[in-house]
């Protein structure tokens, strides 16, 4: 690993711009309403860090589509750190915040929101965390980017963009609220030489 090396200038492509991210989220919001036949019982749970931001944006759109949707009672965040299966492979991770709507998640339609879907292991951890918190009627999965390479039998219900990638590439999501600057989904590390961990600023799917 050689952080700080300027390798990310080679083969760094923006695959989704701010406009496209906005449109994808709006479409996902409509799909959520359609799939759930309304917004009754819909609870959005964002997975930190950027999933929380995306869930918040989705909630605004749902409220715009269906005024009955109240983000204050239907939005939460789900930290999955303590349920991960790779804790021992990494330096200790800080435990994040889990907040659920006051009414809980029992018999709700829970939509998990994450930025990048990759191996599926984060979602596996999220499902385990959910089962300790309650028993939702349905659990669905929304992600901004599906980059493939699943290692578990998990599939998304709502996808912003399917993005075929190689495992050597890194997909970073930048969101204004978290990273500053313009929203973007960026692929870096195209080309075999790049193994550098130079993209520390953006969320990178593991």
């Amino acid at each position: 690993m050689s952080p700080g090396m300027p390798e990310h200038t080679t083969g760094r492509t923006t695959v989704l711009g701010a406009q496209e991210i906005q449109r994808a989220l709006t479409r996902i919001a409509h799909e959520v309403v359609e799939r759930s036949k309304g917004v009754d019982d819909v609870v959005l749970l964002g997975i930190p860090t950027r999933g929380v931001t995306l869930a918040r944006r989705l909630a605004e759109r749902l409220a715009a589509i269906e005024p009955a949707f109240d983000p204050a009672h239907s939005l939460g965040e789900l930290d999955v750190t303590m349920y991960r299966d790779d804790l021992r492979r990494h330096p200790t991770r800080a435990v994040g915040v889990t907040t659920l709507p006051a009414a809980g998640i029992d018999d709700k339609i829970v939509v998990l929101v994450d930025d990048v879907l990759y191996s599926g292991r984060t979602i596996r951890a999220a499902l385990d965390a959910l089962s300790d918190l309650g028993r939702p009627r349905v659990v669905r999965l929304a992600c901004l980017v599906d980059r493939g390479h699943r290692e578990l039998p998990i599939r998304p219900d709502f996808v912003g963009k399917n993005l075929p990638t190689a495992t050597t590439e890194r997909v970073g999501v930048r969101l204004q609220e978290v990273d500053g600057g313009e929203d973007a989904v960026v692929i870096s590390g195209r080309g075999p030489a790049d193994g550098a961990d130079g993209d520390a600023g953006a969320g990178v799917a593991r």
Binding site: D79, M82, Y83, L87, A94, V95, G96, V97, T98, D128, D132, L133
Partner: peptide
């Protein structure tokens, strides 16, 4: 502060019905 912040998250899990974590 990291210890105290982590403890705050742990305390939050202890008000749940299922207090056990698989960590």
């Amino acid at each position: 502060i990291l210890l105290l912040d982590t403890a705050a998250q742990m305390a939050a899990t202890q008000s749940r019905e299922i207090k056990k974590l698989p960590t």
